[in-house]
């Protein structure tokens, strides 16, 4: 599904990712853990094509396509989705309008028929309910005035509606209360399928109790320094990142 080879990325002239190799097969869920500033969000932004992240070496292939040749919206239409660590507020654009525009833009890009207002409303209601996203939230401008937890739930609602093939969840658990963590995890698990893969970035093992990963990677100072099974997360919870050099001067 996704194949990253020797990926080097610079931000503002500083090399942040220093040779990442990562392969995520169809249907797999991989977790990425690692200290603050190690480059986890950087990786997620490079995958989605954010400006200012310069790939100096390496490649990213998604379903056999060269991701680095694709624009931001082409990647989205091809099924790459990023649930932001810090979702952006969009004043003046209601969540509803945004969702409809996004879904229909993707459908159009894939040569599918656009959904009419009635069908769309039905779809949103159906997806919003289990995530406790209220009608009132849907009428508000996107993310504006949403609490931290509401923003994260709104991200997962977007994912549920857009049904991507490769989802990156960047600290979706941070800011969620215990109940919301469960709701959101259920939402994510509902999307798991043999054709859909996920990259789950988190600091806490707890999330991985709900969304059980096939593999766990430790990212430190721009490199994947260890890969293991789900038990690696438990180990990290106990021992921290010290043995991966997190406390050394960069």
């Amino acid at each position: 599904m996704l194949e990253i080879k020797n990926l080097h990325v610079e931000v503002g002239g500083n090399e942040i990712l220093k040779g990442i190799d990562l392969e995520v097969g169809a249907g797999e869920v991989h977790a990425i853990m690692g200290p603050n500033g190690s480059g986890k969000s950087t990786l997620s932004y490079v995958l989605s094509g954010r400006e200012g992240y310069e790939v100096t070496q390496g490649s990213i292939a998604y379903k056999g396509q060269d991701v680095l040749e694709m624009s931001v919206d082409e990647r989205a239409a091809a099924g790459i989705f990023l649930a932001f660590q810090y979702p952006i507020e969009i004043p003046g654009v209601t969540t509803m309008t945004f969702l409809k525009t996004a879904l229909n833009a993707q459908r159009k890009a894939r040569g599918e028929e656009e959904l009419d207002a009635v069908k769309f409303l039905k779809l949103v209601r159906e997806k919003a309910k289990p995530l406790n996203v209220t009608d009132e939230m849907l009428k508000r401008p996107l993310n504006v005035g949403f609490s931290g937890g509401e923003k994260k739930r709104a991200e997962i609602l977007q994912m549920a509606i857009l049904e991507p093939w490769f989802a990156i969840l960047d600290e979706t658990d941070s800011g969620l209360d215990i109940d919301a963590l469960k709701t959101v995890s259920e939402g994510v698990n509902a999307l798991r399928s043999p054709e859909r893969s996920m990259l789950v970035i988190t600091h806490y093992q707890r999330l991985l109790d709900y969304i059980v990963p096939d593999k766990v990677h430790v990212l430190s100072k721009g490199r994947i320094v260890k890969t293991g099974g789900k038990e690696l997360a438990l180990e990290l919870e106990k021992s921290g990142y010290a043995e991966y050099g997190a406390d050394e001067a960069a």
Partner: peptide, 15 residues
Amino acid sequence: DALFYLRSRGIDEMT
């Protein structure tokens, strides 16, 4: 940032 966010959901740049 807002433009990137919208585009990351598949909305083309013009739209």
